[in-house]
Amino acid sequence: MDDYIENENAYPDDEYIYNETFIGEDGEEYYYEEPLISLFDVVKEYDKGTVKALNGINLDIFEGEFVSIIGPSGSGKSTLLNMLGALDKPTRGKIYIDGIDLVKEKDLSEFRQEKIGFVFQLHNLIPNLSVFDNVQIPLLPTGMSNKEMKEKASEIIRAVGLEDKKKQRPNKLSGGQRQRVAIARALVNNPSIILADEPTGSLDSKTGEMILNLLMEMHERYNVTLIIVTHDNGVAALAERTIKIKDGQVIEDKYNY
């Protein structure tokens, strides 16, 4: 992985040969891991092209990474996250996730259901459903048996520490508890990628820290790829890799350790 970053010139011109060792132009042996997520020249325009939220993003993210995307508000970081979660389609460019062409694919619901867990800034829980039902929602279209769904939802609610709040409605919970429900919902279908849009944005610092720890714990325990959008440098620094975005373009991409 490090080789890729340090030796960009060693990248093959025409096509990528992933997961195979080969000899580069400099005579050294290289191994390219296939990225989980690849973006090529992704552009997203709004209002008939007058607003460019994303302006030519090229990015590879690998399986199991913990990446933070940082930038000022309006820089396009949330738009980028929405593209990765297949919640929106780019105006131009290509996005591949786990071999699926998100631009060409017509019905992305299955992709979202199998691969993605989304944690929104405002948690987006359904107010008239209990914690348990909210967490169970992503499992309903899977054709799983009721018993299995119940077990999975209970297990993940236990993992985020809300076992005693199972039957409560979201409006009875604190901000931090609601965000934990949202994380449980994002994790319940064993996604390979968790996308979190300002997950601590609406929380006080102590609760925010708790939520981040929980996300990191889940990332480690289930080896999910964790991508967090934030405007907080402190939060961004916790990640293994930080991608800085400004005016819809990547201006910095670095590994923190």
Binding site: L87, S109, E110, F111, Q113, I137, L140
Partner: peptide, 16 residues
Amino acid sequence: TKEIGVLKSVGWKSRK
């Protein structure tokens, strides 16, 4: 509408 957005974001098909 927002709830429908949530359902879609967690992988529900329009038909469902």
